[in-house]
Amino acid sequence: MNSTNIAARAESASKIYGSGENEVRALDNVSVSFERGKFSAIMGPSGSGKSTLMHCVAGLDALTSGKVFIGETDLSELSDKEITKLRREKVGFVFQSFNLIPTLNAYENITLPLSLGKKLGDEAWIKQVIDTISLNDRLNHRPSELSGGQQQRVAVARALATQPEIIFADEPTGNLDSKSGSDILKFMRRAVTDLKQTIVMVTHDAVSASYADHIVFLADGKIAGEMTQPTPDKVLDYLKHLGE
């Protein structure tokens, strides 16, 4: 793997919560890379450290030891302000819930990271993104006037708006019904295939994971394995395997 092809990576990343008796090793010497232009998934049982890994790689949280890179940038060398700027310009986020600012309408939410950096953004690109999520007639609506699925679509569009190096999505379909969920997954798939974006998604659901090009399995804060070109069956099979 050529390093210029890597959108983000972790090197011997460890994250320890608490100390002494209460010490929790959420990440234990994890090294992992996420390839540019690919849809990656992080899978594992609840409490395995998926979210922690994502937060640390995305610059939302600091590691206890080890290093993370977004592109060629070592996050540990950046100040809070620089990391904020990097998140704004190079990283997109989709969370499970509370993704939108209730006082801003859909369009303002989508362009929020750009506005925060006082940038106009690539209008053609934003139009293309909005077309893809097919919410053209809802752009003036506030989040409270949108359904859960629509809200998540706006969130994904927001993540895409800055054409970031990488998008992190933590269980983006966790709160949705299966129809809305699969819409979001298909949409993310299209963003990678058609719009050449890079997405890393955290999930504990095999079907969701099977939309990805590449899966990293986590267990007890350690890498338990990887898989390319997954299908739901292959994933379930693997998980069963892992359980033994």
Partner: peptide
């Protein structure tokens, strides 16, 4: 706090 956390996540600086 959710909102402020989210704003911080998507790139709002402390001074903003």
């Amino acid at each position: 706090k959710h909102e402020i956390g989210l704003l911080r996540a998507v790139g709002m600086t402390r001074s903003q």
